[in-house]
Amino acid sequence: MKDQIEHSYEQDIVGDDIYSIRKVIEPHRDDVDHVMKYVLIGIAAVFLSVMLIMPLAVVILNALRDGWQAYREAVLDEYTVKALQLTLLATVCAVAVNTAFGLFASYLLSKFYFRGRQVLASLIDIPFSISPVIAGLVFILTFGKIGWMGDFLKAHNIKIVFAVPGVILVTIFVTFPFVFRELFPVMNAQGKDEEEAAALMGAGGLMIFRRITFPHIKWALVYGVVLCTARAMGEFGAVSVISGHLRGKTNTLPLHVEILYNEFNTTAAFAVSSILVIMAVIILIIRSFIERKRKI
């Protein structure tokens, strides 16, 4: 019995990484079936090569096809830089908003009980289940000329659709659940005993968060931010609908890639893509670093 309890407590401590893949692929002492093992490894390797490694190689090779000079030109092109700036702006906004929201929402849903708790939790997941294109359309219908808020926005001279605010808004929408999804299970697993204990000793909300809640969710938070960043940078569908493709104004990097490609400017398209690929790789590295950290 003691062992059991000890064990469950330990699990509590490392409970954060129940979502980590690492745990699943931990080595077994004896492999039951060697043939099976190598067949599966083979399938995985082939699949990954065809689906991931080859395409990435193609991007890089094509980007450099016309030489380093052409690559530089494409990357430093005025519109590319503008697109990159907008992508970064939208990403930063989305991450900031969704981090703040994710923190509040997961704190609320894991530490308080109230009617409609379940409903709220499912509502937050909506962006996961809605196609980004439809998300873009919804925003046009809400904030556009013919939309519900069209007249109001026009009267106040606020432009959202086919403008930067629209791009930012849909990016926020599409990446809405990421931070919450990472934080919620961790906060929920923590329970609220520690918080209650601290509150009983007279600690205020901020102190409780700083000393007790935050250390527990730190890595989940960073992880959520990383996922959110990755998704925000790559968003195409929703942004495509709402941006209006105004070159140098509302084009994000993915949109810019599409335009270049449609203009048969393949080298440039791949060069710009490579920026996204490089950012993705950086994020991947950060991500695996965090996974390791969370395991400790």
Binding site: G191, D193, E194, E196, A197, R211
Partner: peptide, 15 residues
């Protein structure tokens, strides 16, 4: 003026 010992102790695990 209360001291409370929780069922699972609720010790602050990061302290």
């Amino acid at each position: 003026g209360i001291g409370f010992v929780f069922q699972n102790y609720a010790l602050f695990r990061y302290m």
